[in-house]
Design a protein around this nucleic acid. Structure first.
Lengths: 346, 346
DNA sequence: GCTTCGGCTCGAAGCGTTTCGGGAACCGCC
DNA sequence: GGCGGTTCCCGAAACGCTTCGAGCCGAAGC
């Protein structure tokens, strides 16, 4: 195995100079640096990660903890894990994946032994043991999501409240006065679950109240047939909503579209549609659905950035809420039978 | 930070003895061992993973490489990654997750620097650059799946051919003479994709030929509406199949059930159903569907076992195909209008 | 009583890198 | 020409652990 000693010898310098040159630290004369780099190239030298970790006290590995629970969606989970991995790589870090059945224990293990330099806590619950633990660890950590108590934590998340508001604003502006909200399964709104579903709903209902928009809410289970029936019922009342806001699993989207087709309602002529805070692509539906997307990359990128800043240096505890944005696919229009100027974005 | 020196001092032994005792290696008198363990406990000593990795040349980390491609399903991917993680943990290993956009480069990186002790290659393509690379690396690796050329490799996978055969046998035994096969999207059967879809289809069609069973095949895209239409067409011919075998995405299962309901066919009275090689639970459908499941845990457990054997010691290259098994949920019955003894498993 | 053996323990040599402190050479300036 | 300040380079000290080889000692074998 070729070591830095070999490189130094071939380049005719000391190993310390070789180390400085290879790592871009210290001050090394350009000519010397080139000589060392050429030697390294020639010998196909690769830094021994174990030795480097030992000497530097850094492994260049981040732990990513992501529980798999029944009340959330696999694709969302995967999206965040992959986004975290991608973000980490941009800073030359790798990720070590911690699973549900090791949540706290795993964190303790990779942390106390110095296996990782930092922790990314994904998909956090309102009350999450991982967060409690992270507070006590000396290894820096960052939370993607918003636990009940954010004191002393660095948290990053989409502003779900604003996302809910944005959807309502858009529809209100288009002239809708009664909207249907298709939410997550009821269990997702309980205090022991994640808190983004209630946050979104809060934003939505409060803004609706402010703007004088009525909201009919349903929370179908993760099951196509139930979802479809639920949506059909939602639309079959005497005074049905003229628009739907979806913050639900993918299957519910399909179910909603099928239910609409079945009832002979077309999108967007009869009913407008907005999907809020999804990680999947709502353009792939037919028709494509307007979205206020949940971009895992955004949250994870920012989280990683902050985490690395914590690793070398201090970062003030904070809660960063990322502003939502709107993706127009033409699934929102004025409700039927109403006149006025065409709906335009703010 | 408390080190092994502290433990040794408190226990009144040398650090080498402490090391042997703590790692269960060498020979240490029981009394001494206990004394050392008590000291470690008292001092809350945790082995420094970096130092240990450096000294021992082992990091206790395995790389898991898993490409995300459009032609497979997120939930399957996640299932295998999690299964790999779980298996690794059982042997006190952690996993470092490598993503698509780094397939070969990432492997090279974590390998040449000694970041990981071994590699688990998931979801392998028939022709996969990761496999080519793995062959040249000095770090041991194991493949979950079956590439075109398995020479010199250790491969583990479900026996998809046998799984396909098993489904047909079951249906033939129940008296079915014409079955419908709902496969993956057409692209999955091309030579540049994974080869488990063609393997399964081969087993199915060959066994069908042997048993005199006709097979009508469809390969719907990953899209509910298309899938549903396709299944409806499959069942709307003059002489429709009396049973369906599904090796398809979850949405296609839902679509098939809805299509059947729409056509007024009930399961299993009018049509029998078997789902083959799925990682999701087919019991959650209504009605529950018989399955020849793809158990990610099985493949990953065995793969990990072999990988660790390779890490310390030699393992002969091999291809291990795991035998499929049948899970009965009552969705298979004799075709309507036929007499004879009730269908019973072999 | 001697040797031999095996169980137990220890000292010390790494493992390959980072990084500190210092020294040599050189510069510009008074 | 002396002197403070840079720039560039080097030697050597860690970093905490594993593991080899050797030593000691009591028990067993002759």
């Amino acid at each position: 195995m070729t070591t830095i000693h070999d490189v130094a010898r071939v380049a005719g310098v000391s190993i310390s100079t070789a180390s400085y040159a290879l790592n871009g630290k210290g001050s090394v004369a350009p000519a010397t640096r080139r000589r060392i780099q050429r030697a390294a190239e020639k010998l196909d030298y690769k830094t021994n990660a174990r030795a480097r970790a030992f000497a530097s006290g850094r492994t260049s590995i981040l732990a990513v903890t992501e529980p798999l629970r029944a009340d959330t969606f696999t694709s969302n989970h995967m999206a965040f894990v992959l986004a975290a991995a991608k973000a980490a790589r941009r800073y030359d870090y790798d990720i070590l994946l911690l699973t549900q059945e090791e949540a706290a224990g795993g964190l303790r293990r990779v942390t106390s032994g110095g296996t990782v330099d930092g922790i990314v806590i994904l998909d956090v619950l309102t009350h999450d043991e991982r967060v409690e633990l992270a507070r006590t660890l000396k290894v820096p950590s960052v939370v993607v999501g918003v636990p009940a108590d954010t004191a002393g934590l660095v948290c990053v998340d989409l502003d779900f409240v604003a996302a809910g508001r944005m959807a309502v604003q858009r529809l209100a502006q288009a002239g809708h006065r009664r909207i249907g909200f298709i939410g997550h399964p009821a269990a997702s709104y309980r205090p022991e679950a994640s808190n983004f579903p209630p946050r979104l709903r809060t934003g939505l209902t409060e803004e609706a109240g402010r703007l004088g928009v009525a909201v009919d809410t349903v929370t179908p289970e993760v099951d196509y047939r139930t979802a479809r029936r639920t949506v059909t019922e939602l639309l079959s009342v005497r005074e049905p909503p003229t628009a739907l806001v979806l913050h639900a699993h993918e299957e519910a989207h399909t179910a909603a579209l099928e239910a609409l087709a079945d009832l002979g309602r077309t999108v967007p002529d009869d009913v407008s549609l907005i999907s809020v805070a999804q990680t999947f692509d709502t353009a792939r539906f037919s028709p494509a659905i307007d979205a206020v997307p949940l971009v895992a990359e955004r949250s994870c990128e920012r989280a990683t950035e902050l985490l690395l800043a914590m690793i070398d240096g201090d970062v003030e505890p904070r809660l960063e809420l990322l502003s939502p944005f709107y993706v127009d696919h033409g699934s929102v229009r004025r409700p039927p039978g109403t006149a006025g100027p065409p709906a335009t974005p703010t």
